[in-house]
Write a protein that binds this DNA or RNA. Sequence first.
RNA 1: CGGGGUGUAGCGCAGCCCGGUUAGCGCAUCUGCUUUGGGAGCAGAGGGCCGCAGGUUCGAAUCCUGCCACCCCGACCA
Length: 491
Amino acid sequence: MGKKITSKSEDYSQWYNDLVLKAGLAEHSAVRGCMVIKPYGFAIWENMKAELDRMFKETGHSNAYFPLFIPKSFLSKEAAHVEGFAKECAVITHYRLKKDPDGDGVIVDPEAKLEEELIVRPTSETIIWNSYRNWIQSYRDLPLLINQWANVVRWEMRTRLFLRTAEFLWQEGHTAHATKEEAMEESLKMIHVYADFAENFMAMPVVIGEKTESERFAGAEITYTIEALMQDGKALQSGTSHYLGHNFAKAFDVKFTDENGKEEYVYSTSWGVSTRLVGGLIMTHSDDNGLVLPPRLAPIHVVIVPIFKNDEQKSAIDEYADGIVKELKDNGIKVKYDDDDNKRPGFKFAEYEMMGVPIRLAIGPRDLENSNVEVARRDTYEKKIESRENLAQKLNLLLEEIQDNLFNKAKKYREDHTTSVSSIDEFKEVLEKKGGFIEAFWDGSNESEEAIKTQTKADIRCIPLKSDNAEGKCLISGKSTNLKVLFAKAY
RNA sequence: CGGGGUGUAGCGCAGCCCGGUUAGCGCAUCUGCUUUGGGAGCAGAGGGCCGCAGGUUCGAAUCCUGCCACCCCGACCA
């Protein structure tokens, strides 16, 4: 592991890249736009996944798996949907290679052309709804609440590790309901599940809101979003949930017979979060010394570093540490004892700071003598000597405190970087000097939205669900409106 | 996909402009000894298709052409 990463203040993008690489989260692969998620980064994703999966099941959903490939014709069944994804689809045209007759390599066998091309899924609505047609006949089959964990491909022009890669991992929920009310409730419920996860596990405060028409998912009637503010003042769309109305039911002819024997189209929703969340996690808490992880998602909660001068001391510390490791494990703390003699303590301190381990214990001869340990927090760098008594209990409390502190710090940052403005000049000034979220009134028109976007490069992140319904004047048109929306530059 | 930059040992770089012995340096690695409370010291050793493919030349890391990848800035997106 290298020594230093670029400082945030010097170059935020570079800081982010350095951090992802140096902390061993991910690296670039041989394939353009695709990343290799390394074990430490994947462990964080697995922790996210485990918790989200639990939350989905608690809200009545089951997992299933649908194919990676989608017949081209499926994608074109829903007009808005095709248009939205057409520009970034990978297409399979052939199914066989053969030896290059003119060389050593292989070439695509021109004889093995597919009759109908297959699309690598950018999202799975179409292939799933094609199955749902057969699954749903009666109101007794509803609601149908399915989630899938999968990879998807969106051929992006410009990629960034975790934040935007050509292939990414995500979950996509796809539900079918008998009534509009129920489907709308489901889409709202799931955006709240995401918000709950973001705030309570990632310690990343989010604003729940609705997307404007122009920012809506291709094929949705309503798109809800959770928006988080990163440390550089830019917003990150971190999860979305869509009310799809009848759009996919009609496109795939999915009808059910209701209690009265009448045939009706079903109402649907879809919702997803991706490995982008890992990027959000990094950019919410980390600093110039590396990653800072909230305990609830950290692969390692506590690392123990022994400090010794000779074998005799080492074995005494080993014994002392073994007792601590056992006690912590028994109390649900994920602990690592790093007794690697090739690295000196200072090196390890820096290394685990880079990796964002929330708590570090150092144990040396002095601690042994007094039955103490040195406890260092990653989030505040605070160090203190604690007695060995009830250590697991103390550390569990400390982990909770760190979790809370990270959330509160991030929330304060967001509050400090959310500014209300009443004129376009003020808007531009705030955006340039301070960044962050900007609250302002909007008349609801496409033109005004566009105008602000072209003038400022910031766009409407969402119309927050929590609103005071106050009246004000649109920044652009000056018309009276009660739409107070959140603007920001976005990732 | 447009503009700019980069690619030489696992990592970070020098060398390239002005072609010419055996391609260097720092970190990391290996061996040994000494060390260990914030990124250790000394001694020795190993490690290179100079991004890939063509071309020019007696001779290419160096010059020319094409390609690939990555980074930054734009347009598009979760």
